[in-house]
């Protein structure tokens, strides 16, 4: 598990992820930020990475307040007002016209979206 540096009242301490810490300022590492960009597939310059590292650290530091609350036994809310899955009849109906859909394709070849090769030869 990756380590994170925590600053407690000005004293730098080492903490492991998942530990409950109160009133801490958390610093993301550059490696962690690179890992996130890889997960969400967004390219970034070195400058962007550093700005992101510092801003996300600041924001996440504010979120540590959530660790204060006792949520033992509380059910999570994922979606509001949906007590059950909504089903509809599986009846045929027209979908969007092919030309309308392909009209927005950035790269197109005949009736296909054109992309780079996905599979190796």
């Amino acid at each position: 598990m990756p380590t994170r540096y925590l600053f407690v009242e000005g004293v730098q301490a080492l903490c492991y992820t998942g530990a409950v810490c109160e009133r801490v300022f958390m610093e993301l590492t550059r490696a962690e930020v690179i890992h996130i960009t890889a997960l969400c597939r967004v390219a970034m310059t070195d400058d962007e990475l550093e700005t992101m590292r510092s801003q996300l650290s600041d924001i996440l530091g504010h979120f540590e307040t959530l660790q204060e609350l006792d949520v033992e036994g509380v059910a999570p809310t994922g979606h509001l007002g949906m007590s059950q899955t909504v089903l509809r009849e599986d009846s045929p109906r027209p979908s969007l016209a092919r030309e309308d859909v392909l009209a927005n394709a950035p790269l197109r070849e005949d009736n296909y979206f054109r992309v780079h090769a996905v599979l190796d030869e």
Partner: peptide
């Protein structure tokens, strides 16, 4: 944890 606190707020 955020989803659980969401329940408390609701």
């Amino acid at each position: 944890r955020a989803q659980k606190v969401r329940t408390l707020i609701s």
